[in-house]
Simulated scan of single mutants.
Amino acid sequence: MRLTAPPRRNTGRRDTEGMAVASFVLGLVGLVVLNLVLGPVAIALAVIALRRDTPRPFRARLGLALGIADLLILAVLLALDHGASWTAFG
């Protein structure tokens, strides 16, 4: 007895579309807060979405770039502040 609907062909592509959008949003938010956490998550989601042939490749590439930018900003801020942590509110 089957309790769920049979899988559709477009299910995987819709999932990758969500991953591409999520990587963009997380990368964007990561520019301000939680760089160390949100940057790698955005990178991972973007890479998975691109490997699975997302219908939104530009959004996934943008999420990838923002995730990398998150980590670069964190590295620069840590280098300028001699290893001390920073916050957006001073």
Rank of each mutant, 00 (worst) to 15 (best):
residue 5 A to V: 07
residue 6 P to Y: 06
residue 7 P to D: 08
residue 8 R to F: 08
residue 8 R to E: 14
residue 11 T to W: 08
residue 12 G to E: 08
residue 13 R to W: 07
residue 19 M to V: 00
residue 25 V to A: 02
residue 26 L to Y: 03
residue 27 G to W: 00
residue 28 L to K: 09
residue 29 V to T: 11
residue 29 V to S: 10
residue 29 V to K: 10
residue 33 V to N: 13
residue 36 L to Q: 14
residue 36 L to D: 13
residue 37 V to F: 15
residue 39 G to A: 10
residue 40 P to V: 08
residue 41 V to A: 07
residue 41 V to F: 06
residue 41 V to S: 05
residue 41 V to M: 06
residue 42 A to D: 02
residue 42 A to C: 01
residue 42 A to T: 01
residue 42 A to H: 03
residue 42 A to I: 01
residue 44 A to K: 05
residue 45 L to P: 03
residue 45 L to N: 09
residue 45 L to Y: 02
residue 46 A to Y: 00
residue 46 A to G: 01
residue 48 I to P: 07
residue 48 I to G: 10
residue 49 A to I: 01
residue 52 R to E: 10
residue 55 P to I: 10
residue 58 F to G: 04
residue 58 F to A: 08
residue 60 A to F: 01
residue 64 L to E: 01
residue 65 A to T: 01
residue 65 A to R: 03
residue 65 A to W: 01
residue 66 L to G: 03
residue 68 I to V: 12
residue 68 I to G: 11
residue 70 D to E: 06
residue 72 L to R: 05
residue 72 L to G: 09
residue 74 L to M: 13
residue 76 V to N: 08
residue 78 L to C: 09
residue 81 D to M: 11
residue 82 H to W: 11
residue 84 A to N: 14
residue 84 A to F: 11
residue 85 S to A: 14
residue 85 S to W: 11
residue 85 S to Q: 12
residue 86 W to C: 14
residue 86 W to A: 15
residue 87 T to D: 13
residue 88 A to R: 12
residue 89 F to I: 14
residue 90 G to H: 12
